[in-house]
């Protein structure tokens, strides 16, 4: 009679998060600050991406005790990350009862060829994408939500802009493509024909699309909403800033009212003189330091 883990309820939770901000947190105290600022969900992890980047080595799923303590600290949904392809880590998080699993390039990939078969899980997954083909491959594997990859922990919005524009442009192109081209387009995109035909018809992804990777200021969040993001992930941007409480609230306000410059101005002004996180020029990162090319 009752069906759990259906595509509708998996995609549905992401629909409930639209227009909101999902914040990376590494302690229950951070999680409480995020919730108080108006976050719609938190991503529980041991280290924020900027610190993962700095620490080097292998980044894995976070300690269960830590994730559990964050789940106990807030009433909003809690997400947690697994390594690309690591279905055993994902099974552990499902058993723990997190609300969403992020199969994330921010952690060190466990499988350099394949992603998790996400259809076989009750817990929904969010995955990163740089373009439409990558997004549709993840959806074909069962992802119930997509986020741009951007370049996590960089404090630089340029990669997220590139990815959101690439996804948006490709959707608009499909929207005007004659039907007889769709098989060829599917081959070019490396994605199943049925999904390509659905995107062409609906002029949008079949799942919710958030922005992630490089958001550091309220204006960054507003920019990404204008470019078609349905919500924002902020990783290092809040807890690497000088004043996390103010940054968290300002980014929430700017996301909600992204099309009203008065509110975005007020959000920027509310930061006073406090500084955003330091940023990296992604062009100066070596190939081995870039996170976005992981998984395709």
């Amino acid at each position: 009679m009752e069906s759990t883990g259906t595509i509708t309820v998996k995609r549905g939770l992401a629909q409930m998060l639209k227009g909101g901000v999902i914040m990376d947190v590494v302690t229950p105290e951070h999680a409480a600050i995020a919730q108080e600022a108006g976050a719609v969900a938190v991503m529980a992890l041991e280290r924020i991406p900027a610190d993962i980047r700095a620490a080097g080595g292998v980044a894995r799923m976070s300690a269960i005790e830590l994730i559990r303590s964050i789940m106990d600290a807030v009433t909003i949904p809690v997400m947690a990350k697994v390594r690309i392809g690591h279905f055993a880590e994902a099974a552990v998080l499902q058993e723990l009862g997190v609300d969403y699993i992020d199969e994330s390039e921010v952690l060190t990939p466990a499988d350099d060829k394949y992603h998790v078969d996400k259809h076989s899980f009750t817990t929904p997954f969010v995955c990163g994408a740089r373009d439409l083909g990558e997004a549709l491959r993840r959806i074909a594997e069962g992802a119930a939500m997509i986020r741009s990859k951007g370049e996590a922990g960089s404090g630089n919005i340029v990669e997220a802009v590139r990815h959101m524009r690439a996804i948006g442009d490709a959707i608009r192109e499909l929207g005007v493509a004659p039907k007889e081209e769709l098989v060829g387009r599917a081959r070019e995109l490396g994605a199943p024909y049925e999904l390509v035909a659905q995107v062409a018809k609906d002029a949008r992804l079949p799942v919710v699309l958030f922005c992630a990777g490089g958001v550091a200021t309220p204006a960054d969040a507003a920019l990404m909403m204008h470019l078609g993001a349905e919500g924002i992930f902020v990783g290092s941007g809040i807890f690497k800033s000088k004043d996390p409480k103010r940054f968290a609230r300002a980014i929430v306000d700017a996301t909600t009212h992204y099309s009203d410059p008065k509110v975005v101005l007020e959000a920027c002004r509310s930061l006073g003189g406090s500084e955003a996180m330091a940023g990296l020029d992604v062009r100066r990162l070596s190939e081995g330091e870039l996170l976005a090319p992981r998984g395709n």
Partner: peptide
């Protein structure tokens, strides 16, 4: 939580 979300 989400794992108990359902169609009924």
């Amino acid at each position: 939580r989400q794992n108990q979300s359902a169609e009924v």
